[in-house]
Amino acid sequence: MTSLTPQNAQLDHVDDHDEDHGSEHPDHRMFGLATFLVADAMTFAGFFAAYLTFKAVNPLMPGAIYELELPLPTLNTILLLVSSATFHRAGVNLRKQQNERCRLWLMLTAMLGLAFLASQMVEYFTLPFGLADNLYASTFYALTGFHGLHVTLGTLMILIVWWQCRTPSGRISANNHFPLEAAELYWHFVDGIWVILFVILYLI
């Protein structure tokens, strides 16, 4: 019934356990992160769908204010797009083992992130409506707030990466650049969401 032929004995088994059993392969971690981001994107998709439906079928209640200014969010869009580029530079430099330059670019990215958050705060405080004022106000804050949470998390991750690649032999280095790449993928994702958000909330 079971014929055992050793023909494939030369094939290594997958999970080579040298010293470290539980550890995941870097490429698999990236894959997992990407899958997680798909899930995350669906959360946003839910919010967007809700917003668009509200907009299509629920008229603004009489007396409710829902007006958005463009300048700040446009600035924010630029900030984030630039930060994606700077993050990319950081990664390139890390792989070239130029940790100092990498850290500079990282710091710049983090600063851009913080600037984004700051200007978002300014926008929040100058808006003529509050969270519970009306349907659009609520959805607006839910969407931008949820996105802002992502930016905050991303900025924290950048700062951690920045700290951990102090030296070429540190936790994060040219040999182990997974954390940086993970943070970078996440950051690009957050940017991408912002662009969609910007178009849907502010432009249409």
Partner: peptide, 19 residues
Amino acid sequence: HTGFFNPGMGGNVVVYQHL
């Protein structure tokens, strides 16, 4: 006390059902 699904505040209960 937001009004996503609260008709008293202009919200839409059917959107919840879709989601």
